[in-house]
Nucleic acid binder design. Structure first.
Lengths: 152, 152
DNA sequence: TCAAAAAATATCGCACGCGATATAAAAAAT
DNA sequence: ATTTTTTATATCGCGTGCGATATTTTTTGA
């Protein structure tokens, strides 16, 4: 009846679906490391720069503390990271990789390649338009601004 | 250290982020209707064709029954749909819109337009490449095949 | 016909995500 | 110096998502 309510015209549904399916394909690869996809994201942030407050990690991943805090607690329980109050600013909690968390980077190096290999297509990456990354980054930037404006 | 483990090189992270942010922007629009985004998706499927078995809805949304079943139960509790065993095939459960579920389509018509309006950008849609939909559909098709192959 | 396989749905457990709200510490304002 | 505001993190509750598995019904095959 209303074309704007057809599933085939929904942009968000496509992103929702691609995100879910990609995460499902990640699952067996990350399971062998004993981590989930959001935990993998946190580790990537820390591998780039260790010793960060919770809020910096949250901002980098565009997640809120109500998601990040329990996530980090689980990672601490699993021995991947340590959480410690900042000496100079008692509000901040600094997150640091443990030896286990640091060593996992070596095992994770093969994950991106294995992901591509496991996708049933002769050339998944090559079939994507060259400019897909900037398009997505523009979208994220616009959406991020919108959400920030909403929460004011 | 390893470029393949940099967040800025992650395709999946971008889809994950766009999906989450878009859903957050949907939230206040759908809240006024009393529904969530996944429930909105189920309703769109039923508005296109009422009276469908659970599995058809699940396939359409590329979700599994362990997600759809509780979702449908909540929607039944909220008086949006009815679930009834199929007479001819006792395994199937047929999902039908209630009057409330049907009437909600009229209220939902404005949601897509209001979503665009609420996004902080002069021309969000116009700044997307013309061929973004087929690209996404190709991705979904490839990923769907991969996940199906995984579960064999 | 009758056991075995397949199909459809459901249950269980756990990890997110996030709106709403609370708590604690630091910074700013009066 | 004290109150107010802001910042950083955490808690609570609920709704997904999904891997693993179970249940029920139908279909298939020997």
């Amino acid at each position: 009846m209303y074309p704007q309510l057809k599933l085939e015209n929904q942009l968000c549904f496509r992103f929702y679906t691609v995100s879910r399916l990609l995460t499902q394909i990640y699952y067996p690869l990350l399971k062998s490391l004993g981590i989930t996809y959001p935990q993998y994201l946190v580790l990537m942030v820390l591998w780039e720069a260790d010793h960060q407050p919770v809020n910096d990690i949250a901002k980098r991943l565009l997640l809120n503390t109500n998601t990040i805090t329990p996530l980090l607690k689980r990672m601490e329980t699993d021995g991947l990271i340590k959480r410690k109050k900042d000496k100079t600013d008692g509000r901040k909690v600094i997150v640091t990789l443990t030896k286990k968390g640091k060593l996992m980077e070596e095992q994770a190096v093969s994950v991106p390649d294995n992901l591509i290999k496991s996708i049933t297509c002769s050339d998944f990456v090559g079939s994507l338009p060259q400019d897909i990354f900037p398009v997505l980054d523009n979208m994220i930037d616009t959406l991020r601004q919108t959400v920030e404006t909403m929460n004011e």
